[in-house]
């Protein structure tokens, strides 16, 4: 490691790999992180793969996965509790990204429907919410999460910082998803609503069976774009002192042992984000193509 700098030195990455992946998660409990990663892969597989036998159960598993993973990672109920301040690195990045993605989509859809509702109060609430969240930088929301939010909570109660950050990231992404989905809803002809109404379908059935499948299909590029943005913006948590992969890496560079290895570090982190985001982009392209050949208009 004292080698002259005429080649890249990847020992740095190798030497810190565990830290980068697990943060300060206690060593004897790391199997829980590994199990969560494995379950995540299974959940993603179940959602994305077509024609799986028992697809319904795979989807249910994906719905419950975030809660199972939360239990595994934080502990309690029979597992040794692990404080969320111990979570860092890639684990933190993935937690923020996956939570934001899974919860912002349904929330965004509901906000988009609310914004088009005929009920004036509901519509007003949704418009104010969407416009307020969109009008404020994510960093500001994260500062709100790290400081101000405690003012709104009953005195004495402590509300986990990671939890607050997850809520902020989710509503931030949801506001953008809402606008993307609203665009998709506007792309449908009024005839689709009328035909569904004329058949006697209720509002929710019409949306579930007729309106949303078409509107979401139109919105796929925008939705995935928002997801990719959210995933990359997760690095902003380092500004409020949380150590995601970028934060950890930068802290590591201060170690005299690793001095001057910034290029390798940043290349590694860039590659990590690129692989995640590029796979999302590829998947979305594939999905669009599949839905297109299914039924040409």
């Amino acid at each position: 490691m004292d080698a002259p700098r005429d080649g890249a030195c990847w020992a740095f990455i190798r030497g810190s790999f565990e830290l980068f992946v697990y943060g300060w998660y206690p060593e004897p409990e790391r199997w829980r992180v590994n199990l969560s990663f494995l379950l995540l892969v299974i959940a993603i597989f179940g959602v994305l793969k077509d024609n799986l036998p028992g697809k319904k159960y795979w989807l249910w598993f994906a719905v419950f996965f975030p809660f199972i993973a939360a239990w595994l990672l934080v502990g309690g109920f029979g597992l040794v509790p692990v404080g969320t301040q111990k979570i860092g690195g890639i684990l933190l990045t993935i937690i923020v990204g996956v939570t934001g993605i899974t919860f912002s989509l349904p929330l965004g859809i509901l906000l988009a429907l609310g914004r088009r509702s005929h009920l004036p109060v509901l519509r007003a609430v949704c418009v104010v919410f969407i416009e307020f969240i969109r009008g404020v930088p994510l960093i500001t929301l994260l500062f709100v999460a790290s400081t101000m939010l405690t003012y709104f909570l009953p005195p004495g109660s402590s509300f986990d910082l990671l939890m607050r950050v997850l809520i902020m990231v989710t509503i931030f992404a949801a506001a953008y998803i809402a606008e993307v989905v609203r665009g998709g809803l506007q792309g449908l002809s009024s005839g689709q609503y009328e035909a569904a109404d004329a058949l006697g379908l209720t509002y929710w059935k019409a949306h579930r069976l007729i309106i949303l499948p078409q509107a979401l299909k139109i919105s796929i590029p925008g939705i995935v774009n928002t997801f990719i943005g959210l995933y990359k913006d997760s690095v902003l948590v380092l500004i409020i002192g949380m150590m995601d992969i970028l934060g950890l890496g930068r802290a590591r560079l201060n170690d005299p042992l690793w001095l001057g290895l910034a290029p390798e570090l940043y290349l590694f982190i860039a590659l990590f984000f690129f692989l995640c985001c590029f796979s999302m982009a590829r998947y979305s392209l594939g999905l669009e193509k599949k839905l297109r050949t299914g039924h040409k208009q």
Binding site: S189, G191, A198, H295
Partner: peptide
């Protein structure tokens, strides 16, 4: 109980 047929058909394309 009332069926309706539209000028533009309005079938569900998906």
């Amino acid at each position: 109980e009332v069926g309706m047929v539209f000028q533009q058909f309005n079938l569900f394309p998906h």
